[in-house]
Simulated assay, not measured.
Amino acid sequence: MLTVNVPDSLHTCSQINNEDISFVHYREASPAGRNLISFESCAISFILSGQKEFFRESASTLVQAGEGIIIPQGNAIISERRLQATEYTSLVIFFPLKIAKDFIWSSPVKLSGTTGCSSALKANNGFLPFKVTSYLSLYIKNIITLIEQKAELTYPVMLHKLQELFLVLAEMHPDTFFDLWNVAQDASEIHLRRVVESNISKGFTLTELAFLTNRSLATFKRDFEKAYGTSPGKYLLKRKMEIASHALHSGKSPAETAMETGYENISNFTAAFKKHTGYTPKEYQSINFQTEPLAI
């Protein structure tokens, strides 16, 4: 058997891509037997018709129409069957592990345990099957419609849709969802992330954040880039702008929003917000009051 690398091998399927996020409508009239699948990205798969038998390490599960499965990066053996349907179909969303980890540390859903992390998988076996609720059915329908219409979605919009899905699944399975992404996560990284995420809006300098993590500035920058995959400055600005967009969308004034995001004066906040979004805070409010806040 040949090893199939996904999502690269699915380039002929109908899909929407932007950077490292993909929404793929997978259809197969004659599914083969067992396949060796190498997931180069993490995936969330919704079975629309037929069934998928999934094997990873020492565990397996059977996922049928009306169900889904969260699959972290790694290898698996998969057998797909169309059963009585004319074809096996699924909606698969691919994304890097970093996005899931970033969601964990900024999530409004409370983490279980004292650290919110686990050194090994507990209630799952390297995957998490789940039932499709009525809310998720509408979510799937919306994504498939966008794919069929060949919609051109920006990366912030695709990220927002993915984070929406994370939030729903985290509320459905709060313990297992968070455990799933935290295999072998270093305790020092846990501490660094906790300090960073708890102080996003406090206006601390990088030197101050480094001090809170008991690191020199150079070590803090090195460990931060290892944990987040980007520089502290870029990440902190992005998170502040996300917080600001939600605050402005909720009706808070630019002055209130500036204070909430750690800016000492509104002019500095306005300049940063316009540079990042292309709009002043007031312009952003007038454009977005009738829609969801942007995932910046």
Score class of each variant (00 low, 15 high):
Lys202Glu: 12
Ser58Gln: 14
Val63Asp: 03
Ser267Trp: 10
Asn75Arg: 02
Asp20Trp: 02
Ile70Asp: 03
Val109Cys: 02
Asn199Cys: 14
Glu264Val: 10
Phe211Val: 07
Thr207Phe: 09
Thr61Tyr: 08
Glu164Phe: 10
Leu83Thr: 14
Asp179Cys: 06
Gly233Asn: 11
Thr89Gln: 09
Ala258Gln: 00
Pro129Arg: 00
Lys221Ser: 13
Asn75Ala: 12
Trp181Pro: 07
Asp223Asn: 12
Trp105Tyr: 14
Lys161Gly: 06
Gln15Gly: 07
Leu111Tyr: 06
Ala32Ile: 08
Met259Glu: 11
Arg34Ser: 10
Thr114Asp: 08
His249Lys: 08
Lys122Arg: 10
Asn124Met: 01
Ser250Met: 13
Thr270Phe: 04
Glu292Ala: 15
Lys52Ala: 13
Thr219Val: 13
Ile77Leu: 09
Glu164Leu: 14
Phe54Val: 09
Tyr88Trp: 06
Ala255Val: 09
Pro281Asp: 05
Thr257Ala: 09
Ser216Asp: 08
Pro293Ser: 06
Leu248Met: 09
Lys275Asp: 13
Thr86Val: 09
Ala247Phe: 15
Ala218Cys: 08
Arg222Pro: 06
Pro31Val: 02
Lys52Leu: 15
Lys240Ser: 10
Ser112Gly: 12
Ser216Lys: 06
Thr154Met: 10
His11Trp: 07
Ala187His: 06
Gly66Asn: 00
Thr3Gly: 07
Met158Ala: 03
Asn199Lys: 04
Ala65Thr: 03
Thr89Glu: 11
Ser60Trp: 02
Leu167Ser: 11
Gln73Gly: 04
Leu97Thr: 12
Ser14Met: 09
Gly68His: 00
Glu28Ser: 13
Ile140Trp: 01
Ala271Glu: 11
Cys117Lys: 01
Met172Asn: 04
Glu19Asn: 15
Phe54His: 09
Glu67Ile: 08
Lys122Ala: 12
Tyr284Leu: 08
Leu10Cys: 09
Ala29Ser: 14
Pro254Cys: 01
Val109Asn: 01
Ala244Pro: 01
Gly233Glu: 10
Arg239Gln: 08
Ile190Gly: 03
Glu256Ala: 13
Thr133Asn: 07
Ile21Trp: 00
Leu2Asp: 11
Phe55Leu: 14
Asn35Gly: 13
Ile47Ala: 03
Leu83Ser: 12
Gly116His: 00
Pro293Met: 02
Phe127Tyr: 15
Leu62Thr: 14
Glu171Gln: 11
Leu180Asn: 00
Ser90Thr: 09
Glu152Trp: 08
His173Ser: 14
Leu138Asp: 15
Glu292Asp: 12
His11Arg: 04
Asn288Trp: 11
Leu62Gly: 09
Phe46Gly: 03
Asp20Ser: 10
Lys101Phe: 05
Glu189Cys: 07
Ala255His: 05
Phe127Ser: 01
Leu159Phe: 07
Phe54Gly: 02
Thr154Glu: 13
Asn124Tyr: 00
Glu197His: 15
Tyr155Ile: 10
Met241Ser: 05
Lys238Leu: 12
Pro156Met: 02
Lys98Thr: 14
Leu146Gln: 12
Gly66Phe: 03
Ser30Phe: 15
Glu57Ile: 15
Val6Arg: 00
Ala258His: 00
Lys141Asn: 14
Ile99Arg: 00
Ser9Asp: 12
Tyr139Gln: 00
Pro72Thr: 02
Phe94Trp: 01
Leu36Thr: 10
Gln285Lys: 10
Ala43Asn: 04
Leu212His: 11
Leu217Thr: 14
Glu28Tyr: 07
Gly116Glu: 03
His160Gly: 15
